[in-house]
Each structure stands twice: as C-alpha cells, then as structure tokens.
Computed example of a mutant assay.
Amino acid sequence: MKTLIKLFNILILSILLATHTGWAQWSATNSGVANTLWDVYFTDNNTGYAVGGYGTFLKTTDAGANWERLSPSFNHQVFSIEFKDESTGIAAGEYQYMTRTNNGGDSWYNVGNPATGWLFDITFVDEDLAYSVGYGGLILQSTNGGGSWSEVSSGVTDELRKVYFRNTTNGYIVGDNGVILKSTNSGDTWTSKTSGTSQKLRSITFFNDFGGLAVGDSGTVLSTQDAGESWITIDIGTSELLMDIVFSNSTDGYIVGDHGLLLKTTDAGSTWGTIHSGTDLLINSIHFPSADTGYMVGAEGTVIHTFNGGGTVGSQEVKVNNELIIYPNPANNILHLDYDNSSIIDFEILDISGRLIKSGYRKAAALNIGGLSPGLYIIKAQINSQIFTDKFMKK
C-alpha cells in the first residue's frame, strides 16, 4: 500500500512539473544596493532607472544586467521617477523633494514646489503637462515639463498615492481611505468618486477607454467599466498588501505586492493567476517598457526582470474562492495557504519519494517551513470535502 501511495505521489509530482508553466519567467539581477527600491521606469527596453531609500538613484543601459548609482544630493526616501523622453526625467519623495535631469541622469538639480509634505507619485501627461501627488490631498501641476509647479485643489485631505492619465484629457488619482478622484479636463479640476472601500488605494490603471482597476491594502481590488464613474470591489482570492498594477497591452495585466506576490491576467482582469516572482520580499513597483519586457523592484534592493512577457499563468487561478492558493513558490521560510479564512485546512507535506515530512491543520494562513531542507516538496490539503495537491520549492 505504501508503495502505491509513493507511486501516486510521484505521478502527481510529474504531472505538476509538466504543467506548471509559470516558473523561471522572471529573473533577479544584482542592483548593488540593499535599500528599498520604490519605483522603476524605463525609457526603452535597455535604459532604465530605479529610486528608493536613502536617496538611492540607479541607472542601467543594458536591460538591467548592470546598475550604476547616480548621485543626486538627497538622503531620504525617493518614491517615484518618470521620464518624458530619453533625457528629461523627474523624481519625487520625502519632504517635498523633487529633482530633475535634462541629460539622462548624468546631473540633477532640485526643483522648487509649494508642497509641504511627502510626494508619493509623479507622471508626465505630455511634453509639457505633468502632475505630482502626495501628503494631505496635495496635487501639483506643471505646464512647462516640470520646470515649475503650482497647486491644484483636490477637495480632499487624505494622502494621495498614485496619479494616472489614460490619455491627455482623462486622469485619475487614488489614495488613503478609498479616495478616487477623476478629471476630464487634463487635471485642471478633480471630482471625487465613490469607491465603496475605506482601504488605502495604492495604484490605478486602465486597459481601455472604459475598463480600469485599482488596488490597495488587504487584497483590495476595485473595477470600473464606465471610465471610472462607478467602482465595484472584486475578490481575487488574496488578502495581501497590493502595491502596483499595470497592463502591458489591452489584455495582459500584472499586480504586485507583499511576500513576492505576482498575479497576471490575460483576459483584461476577468481572472488572475499566480506567477513565480523569484522573491519572498515586498514588490513595490512594476513597469513594462514594451509588451515582452518588464521590470519589478522592491525591498532590499530587489530588481527582477522578464523578457518574454512575464510568462504563462500557472495552474492556480485566484479569482474563484474555492481554489487553494499557494505562494510564494519557491519559498524561504513561510508558505502561504490562501483559501477562505473561515475554513480549516488539513495539510500534509511530502518529499518527492512520497515520505510524509509534516502534517497538521489550521485556518488559511502562513505555514512555517523554515525547518525543511532545500528541495522540492508535494503539499496535499483537504478543505471540507475537496482535496488539493500541488508542489513547492523550498529554498
């Protein structure tokens, strides 16, 4: 009987290995720093910039293979960077800090602005028009390519985290306490929209003229199908902190967040699947300079890239509530089992020979696997009357 069980487990493992196509699509590169990286932006597939803690400014000219450290005169958090062309870019951060380059990052000069607190995001709408948002409902507008800035009324006092324009006319801002603002006149005025949540919203994007998504704390995902006039909450099966969302084309989108979470959709957000990100750490930002080339940055100087469109979604679809979600994979010390917080999960961890290594039961939560030796394992979980079998790699 034991022999049959072992053969069954080996068969299951072989099938899983053959069908798991989400692995090895993203690769880490050495950034040369250990500070948190908050944002990444590429002007083309080869030339990019990353910013982060303690005034960290990085630049690559070889598609992320090597990074050099730039030297603007700032020693605090830098939260956002964006370029309007290959030469002109602006970065923003703590203490109303804003700095500008006109020569591809070779030199930087500080830009005065009326902010009194932190600036969390910055974006160019066109050659001349740019916006930055931040502390206390602050919206800054520049009409000369970031050379000078003036304040625009937001009508709110909450921290504003992200500003996004889907074209030169229609813009959106999200922030704390579920704030969503919309402009239909290139950002001159903004109106508040009902989000239906009090969660902190951290990022927003659109995949066509009407369909958009916003993400934030505690796994919050909001969807609109009427150009941002109304929003509904959708459940994609995670309670993780979600930091950023982007679309590389009209159908393929990505969400990144805590514990190395990387989700992908290939149907404009109708369903989401897990992709192996290559890290257990917080991912703060994701950027695609083209449909196939993407970059992510996060905690401890993490930089991860893909050159094949981010890979194929694995077998774990996370929109449906009756699926067991296992992540990150590979994992260091913590393996997350997400299902339904009210459900008890009976689990077994087996090695590749079918030998029982660990078993127990708990509500959907984080499972400590720190005592396991590095290698490939099978996890079997019974939830109510359903049995799930998957595999994971222990680093």
Rank of each mutant, 00 (worst) to 15 (best):
G112V: 04
I139D: 05
D62W: 07
Q141V: 03
S153F: 02
G146R: 03
S150T: 12
S73F: 06
F83E: 15
S154W: 02
S71Q: 14
S132Q: 09
N113C: 01
I122P: 13
G53H: 14
L138T: 13
N75I: 13
T157D: 12
W149S: 05
T60Y: 03
I81C: 06
S107V: 08
G105W: 01
N113D: 04
L129A: 03
I90W: 04
I81V: 11
T157S: 15
D106C: 05
N110L: 12
T157Y: 11
N66K: 03
G155T: 14
I90Y: 07
G147I: 03
N66A: 00
E159L: 06
A115Y: 06
V125R: 11
S153L: 07
N110R: 15
M98N: 03
F83H: 13
G134Q: 02
V152S: 09
N144S: 10
T99C: 13
T61P: 00
F124I: 00
G53P: 03
Q141M: 13
E159S: 07
G105M: 05
Y164A: 05
Q77D: 09
Y54F: 12
G117Y: 01
V125E: 08
Y164C: 04
L129D: 12
F74P: 11
S142R: 07
D121I: 01
W108F: 13
E94A: 15
T56N: 07
V156S: 07
S148L: 02
S87L: 15
L160V: 09
S154D: 00
A92I: 02
Q77F: 11
T60G: 04
K59R: 09
G55L: 05
V111W: 06
K162A: 12
S73Q: 12
N113E: 07
L129V: 04
V111L: 13
G55E: 00
W118P: 00
D106E: 12
F124S: 11
L138A: 05
T60W: 02
F79P: 05
Y135L: 03
Y135I: 04
N75G: 10
R161C: 14
S87H: 15
G145A: 08
K59G: 01
Q96S: 08
D121K: 06
T61D: 01
Y97W: 06
V125L: 03
W149K: 01
G117E: 05
R161S: 10
V133T: 04
S153H: 06
T61C: 00
L129Y: 05
G112K: 11
G117P: 06
N75M: 10
M98R: 00
L70W: 09
K59M: 01
A63Y: 08
Y54S: 14
G145N: 06
G89L: 04
V152G: 13
G117D: 03
V51D: 07
D85M: 02
G134Y: 05
P114V: 02
E94C: 07
Q96A: 11
K84C: 01
L119F: 00
V156Q: 05
A91K: 00
G104L: 11
Y164E: 03
T116C: 05
N66S: 08
I139V: 10
F124V: 04
T157V: 15
Y135E: 12
Q77K: 12
Y54Q: 13
S87F: 15
S87K: 15
H76Q: 14
Y131E: 06
D126V: 04
I122E: 10
V156L: 07
T101D: 10
S73W: 03
L58K: 15
S142P: 08
T99L: 02
Y131T: 00
T88E: 12
Q141E: 14
G89R: 10
I122W: 09
T56C: 10
L70C: 12
